[in-house]
Write a protein that binds this DNA or RNA. Structure first.
Lengths: 201, 201, 201, 201
DNA sequence: CACTAATCGAGACGGTACGTCCCGTCTTCAG
DNA sequence: CTGAAGACGGGACGTACCGTCTCGATTAGTG
């Protein structure tokens, strides 16, 4: 049983202000210009209020991502009927995070956050990025689940991350080539000219 | 033509000491415990000597990697005759960098360095990691070059990076599955043209 | 009225440690070997704690002097009954600061501090050096206050400072001659009025 | 006889450029913003050329003062016939150095230089400041030389320096009062109030 | 209702590292 | 051998944040 407590409970307003401040600062200035003091200042909160509830900067980010304060709009994949093209579209959009207007690269900020913090890394892959990907991918591959699907998901997502890391330009064509390699070209085998329906496979 | 300059020339001893110090500190303590002051101290060099020649920490790392002060032993892929198995072996070894004894993870340190520095990112992929991979991969796929090969390389490398980021364990079996998905399970036979159906399995 | 502030209050322990460290380092090593880092180190304090409360090194010294961490023993003038001799004695003692054992010269350190910092300069003269001087001088001159007294005080003190700056040796006899010139030889002797020609010789 | 030497002799052009650069930088930016690198840059000279001939910054300043690159215009005292007024005028002019337009205070820069360097201190007093002062003072006191004259000179000069250090404003009237106290009011005897002896006493 | 205990904003604290400036020495090349 | 140029090891500068701590004020239960 819980030991009896008195006093005020955790302030939801403060929690939200912190997550929002973290999200906005990460977006605007990038992961390595993100500071606890900056978050506290922007959130109008004492530093201790952050440290009381999160052990590190990465955990704040992890929670902000998880609650959808970041990447919110990106989580819903399109559905045009062509699963493979939808997949490519979604990946291109994800990749475009690489170059936010401020120039730091939100996707790279995520990567840096993941590299520095286990929880962020785990959540970023498992709950955020992978979920919409798996949905489209299972359609494109005609497989509901299984190790091959997992491997394919990692391969796709990893390729995007790698290209973001290496600052390589990466257009829609390249993305389709990538999808083709991983999902397989076969269903569209002849179709490249003859049987488009097969591509749903 | 360049205007003739007199005066002392750049000290090769200092350059090497800095790169070695950076490499050893990165390996031992990880990217985000790596400091310019630490490098200078360990190299027995003034901080200004670092800043004179490299604009940032990431550029020091980039040059250290490029010169082989890091990853040196890892660049030579095995050659057992089974190209696909060699590929998986090499990837597993690469992935094992994920957990260096001190606990930070050399591979993740590279990723963090790449996330924070364009040059490091570009070089990490293009010149270091990709080269031995491409060699094995082209054998495994029976293709010398081309966009499909590039896409496959990115997918393989990216998947390893993604799993490192998300701290997921990743054994030899998983790696073979990954290779199978990307390269194809077939005997690497004629199938590339003859047995498309198998790739769905 | 002042807006009510909460939060921690300034640490008196840190303040004292800083002033004492500054005083001891100034005495031991001289003004231009006195560094903020040295003070912080010796005081066991973060640099920021110094910068938070004092805008410059000179202001730290000014406060140290004002609080009596420096020159403390020197502020009490002797009182033998012979006001003029007391004055000379006090000045000789002051001048002896010129050559501290470590060789930098405490008095010159004060001068350097004053030259570089307005507050130090103002306080050095007004509150510390001038006060005991004025006391003796008013007795020696038989005048309680007034511009003549001020001018005489500046002349005496200034002469000592100038000699310290120019590294000229300056004994008890010289000091008496100086006092005689400024205070006048008359009151304590008839000779001043009787044999003026002697002073020229 | 001199030992035979080969190679070019010391470059007079370099020597002059250094002294001029030092003088102009001291005047413009003050003693503690004066750097060896700055002098070398402005003089178009290698640093080593400075260190080869002068052991320290203070010695460069000392030589610059001695050669008249600083204070040049100030060395000639006026001569209106009223020796005492001339003296006061010269002192006021000297004191006005205290506030150079750039705000650092040339006189205080001299003081700082003197405080930090024995040679500068010695020369500043002995050869530069004292000489024109002694001339006027000996006229005003009707004494050619002697310890009383030396003491009076130190007292006058020292008072000016002290006031400069303490940032006290100091007008023509104050200066006359100072001169009166040190030189004596006697020649102007009756006018003061009636009982000149009292004011001396 | 008083008391207790935990929360909150605020921010001082001892530290580490930053990136810059300058020190005085050393090294190269041109004259 | 001098002199301009400038790289070098070193050290201090003043700033930014770190994560901990200490305040006074506020806000729930508990007794």
């Amino acid at each position: 049983m819980a030991l009896p407590r008195s006093g005020p409970v955790r302030s939801e307003a403060a929690r939200l202000a912190i997550l929002r401040a973290a999200a906005s600062l990460l977006t605007e200035r990038g992961y390595d210009h993100l500071t606890m003091e900056g978050i506290a200042r922007q959130a109008g909160v004492g530093k201790q209020t952050i440290y009381r509830w999160w052990p590190s900067k990465g955990d704040v980010i992890a929670e902000a991502i998880l609650e959808g304060h970041l990447l919110a709009a990106r989580r819903e994949p399109p559905d045009t009927g062509d699963a493979r093209a939808d997949l490519a579209t979604w990946l291109v959009e994800l990749f475009s995070l690489r170059s936010s207007p401020e120039g730091e690269g939100l996707l790279r900020s995520f990567i840096a956050a993941a590299a520095g913090n286990a929880e962020t890394g785990r959540r970023l892959r498992a709950e955020i990025l992978a979920a919409p990907l798996m949905l489209r991918l299972s359609r494109a591959m005609g497989v509901a689940t299984g190790p091959r699907l997992d491997a394919a998901a990692d391969a796709l997502l990893g390729a995007v991350i790698l290209r973001a890391l290496s600052r390589e330009e990466f257009g829609a064509d390249d993305m389709l080539a990538l999808v083709d390699v991983i999902v397989g070209t076969h269903p569209r085998a002849e179709e490249d000219t003859a049987s488009p329906a097969a591509s749903v496979g």
